[in-house]
Amino acid sequence: MLDMEWPDSWRGSFRIELRAEAISLVERGWPILPGTVSESEGADWQYPTPAHADWQSRLGAHSRQVAAWFTGKPCSLLVATGTMVDALEVSGELGRRAASLLRVTGHPAPIVAMPNGRWLFLTASADAVHPVLAEHDDVTWHGRDGYVPLPPTPYRQGVVHWRVKPEIWGWRLPEAATINEVLVRALLGEHDDGTATASAAVLPPDDQRAATPSAA
Rank of each mutant, 00 (worst) to 15 (best):
Glu41Ala: 13
Pro108Thr: 07
Asp207Cys: 13
Gly146Lys: 05
Ser214Cys: 08
Arg185Cys: 03
Trp169Tyr: 08
Gly60Phe: 01
Asp207Ser: 15
Ile32Trp: 01
Asp193Phe: 02
Ala134Trp: 08
Ser91Asp: 12
Ala201Arg: 14
Gly29Thr: 00
Leu133Gly: 04
Ala61His: 05
Asp192Phe: 10
Asp137Tyr: 02
Val184Gln: 00
Glu175Leu: 14
Phe121Ala: 05
Ala124Glu: 11
Thr178Trp: 10
Gly95Ala: 07
Glu17Thr: 10
Glu181Ser: 06
Pro152Lys: 04
Ala134Ser: 12
Thr140Gln: 11
Ala177Asp: 14
Lys165Glu: 12
Ser63Asn: 00
Val148Phe: 11
Ser57Ala: 12
Gln157His: 09
Glu17Tyr: 09
Val160Phe: 09
Phe121Asn: 06
Val132Trp: 09
Gly189Met: 01
Trp6Asp: 07
Asp138Glu: 13
Pro31Gly: 07
Met84Pro: 00
Gly117His: 05
Asp207Lys: 15
Ile179Asn: 10
Val164Ser: 07
His52Ser: 09
Gln46Thr: 12
Trp119Ser: 03
Arg118Ala: 06
Gly29Ser: 02
His62Asn: 12
Ala128Gly: 02
Glu93Ser: 07
Arg144Asp: 07
Trp30Ala: 15
Leu150Ile: 13
Leu77Glu: 07
Ser76Thr: 04
Ala210Val: 13
His161Ala: 14
Ala210Gln: 14
Ser24Met: 07
Leu18Ala: 02
Glu175Asn: 14
Trp169Phe: 08
Gly42Ile: 11
Leu77Gln: 08
Ile168His: 06
Ile168Glu: 11
Pro7Cys: 14
Ala67Tyr: 01
Phe121Leu: 07
Gly82Val: 10
Glu175Tyr: 12
Val159Ile: 15
Leu183Ala: 00
Arg144Gly: 04
Tyr47Leu: 11
Ala196Ile: 06
Lys73Pro: 03
His142Gln: 07
Thr81Cys: 10
Asp138Tyr: 02
Ala196Tyr: 06
Pro110Cys: 04
Arg11Asn: 08
Phe70Pro: 00
Ala98Lys: 03
Ser57Cys: 01
Thr81Val: 06
Arg118Tyr: 03
Leu188Asn: 06
Val112Ser: 11
Gly29Lys: 01
Met1His: 14
Ala128Val: 10
Ser63Glu: 08
Ile111Thr: 03
Ser214Pro: 04
Gly35Ile: 06
Arg97Lys: 02
Asp138Cys: 03
Ser91Gly: 14
Ala43His: 04
His107Gly: 02
Gly42Lys: 09
Pro131Phe: 11
Trp162Gly: 05
Thr83Met: 14
Asn116Leu: 04
Gly117Met: 06
Glu190Pro: 00
Ala211Pro: 02
Ala80Cys: 11
Leu150Lys: 08
His107Val: 05
Ile16Gln: 13
Pro174Gln: 14
Ser125Val: 10
Arg118Leu: 05
Asp145Asn: 15
Met114Tyr: 11
Trp171Val: 11
Gly92Ser: 12
Ala68Pro: 01
Ser24Gly: 09
Gln208Gly: 11
Ala20Tyr: 01
Gly146Tyr: 08
Val90Tyr: 06
Gly189Thr: 05
Gly117Val: 04
Ser57Thr: 09
Pro151Ala: 09
Ser40Gly: 08
Leu187Thr: 05
Arg144Tyr: 10
